[in-house]
Design a protein around this nucleic acid. Structure first.
Lengths: 197, 197
DNA sequence: GCAAATTAATGATTTATTCAAG
DNA sequence: CTTGAATAAATCATTAATTTGC
């Protein structure tokens, strides 16, 4: 029981800031390529993996929605409470979610440039995590080491990641030219009310 | 609108048979390594990708649960109907799901052998799918083309795939040696009954 | 002040739902 | 109607905030 280092990714302020900026810019569900890029970019500020980026957006989006939902619901109740039964049809249920308003990307546009047919990305695997720790030889059948020339016809873009085991010492890069840090908008207005336990 | 070939994976009988056998053997949520292996194996019988395997297990597990749920619910109702209010406490709610009974793997054991530290798997990327079709240069920052030696310390095991496009002509291979099949065991049904439309 | 004890956030997984090809 | 594919919701688990007793 000496985890030495944290078992889960802990975003640095810079990484967080950038991610949030991207989110604000409209990015919600980055695809594999985007994730790779973002990961590459953010890895400069500290250890990070594609799945971290993937999960971050998933969670952020979900919790954002959740927050909105709650807020609206609350407002609804307010109305019900104060103005007595003066309810809008069914506004309180199901709000529409829109990926990106219009073209809010702006300075983040470089994350959205047309595909340059990225060769390939090397993924590494290791010991499985959960239930089975088997692993057979991972020599890929002749089918896989196809070339880019072939790749192109494929417009693939999956991702797929799975966690693994022992984390290595956190080598959070120091440097980074002084990003002025402004009040990291991490304002999570705890506005919830599910009292657990 | 002439996709030339099907837009989605269409499992060959052999692939399906093998997948089902694995499922019966207890495999439910294969990890990245396993998926890679299974994919490799099945690719012999026709075109297939990791995500197909991933999704297959996801869907199969879910629909299996769903089926059971429905059945139980139905039985419950039967009871209610016929035997009049003679209900078991709350049996109809929340039954436990267990991944693999004990060691039901048996002849499928080769899919569960201990990790051999698979070098790496080459993933390819291509044109994004949905909302943004940008793609910048995918030259990975010096951080990524690390060697396996280093890899190990990383606790990754993600996989990250994303769909692809035009499937190549289905080259269904024949054969496959008769796998014996035995009973399922998995369950997990939570409770359902949402009759849609 | 300072830890142990609680509680709130949030990273990581799993499960349910939805969409659409066939 | 079945089922591959994709997304969203729910849940689990660990870390950071914070509260509290000394």
């Amino acid at each position: 029981m000496s985890p030495a280092v944290s078992s889960r990714w802990c975003p640095t302020p810079e990484q967080l800031m950038i991610l949030e900026e991207m989110y604000r810019s409209g990015i919600r569900t980055p695809n594999a390529s985007q994730i790779q890029q973002i990961t590459a970019h953010l890895s400069y500020y500290g250890r990070i993996e594609g799945k971290n980026v993937f999960y971050w957006f998933q969670n952020h989006k979900a919790r954002d929605r959740q927050k909105l939902r709650r807020k609206l619901l609350q407002e609804q109740q307010q109305l019900h409470y104060h103005q007595f039964q003066q309810h809008q049809p069914n506004l309180h249920l199901q709000l529409q979610y829109f990926e990106s308003p219009a073209s809010p990307f702006q300075h983040l546009s470089y994350y959205n440039s047309p595909s340059l047919l990225p060769q390939g990305v090397v993924l590494h695997e290791g010991a499985p995590r959960q239930m089975m720790n088997y692993t057979w030889k991972v020599d890929y059948p002749e089918k896989v080491d196809i070339e880019k020339s072939m790749m192109r016809s494929y417009d693939s873009d999956w991702i797929m990641m799975v966690d693994m085991g022992p984390p290595s010492p956190c080598l959070t890069r120091p440097a980074l030219e002084t990003l002025e840090l402004f009040p990291i908008k991490a304002t999570n207005l705890k506005e919830e009310c599910n009292n657990r336990s």
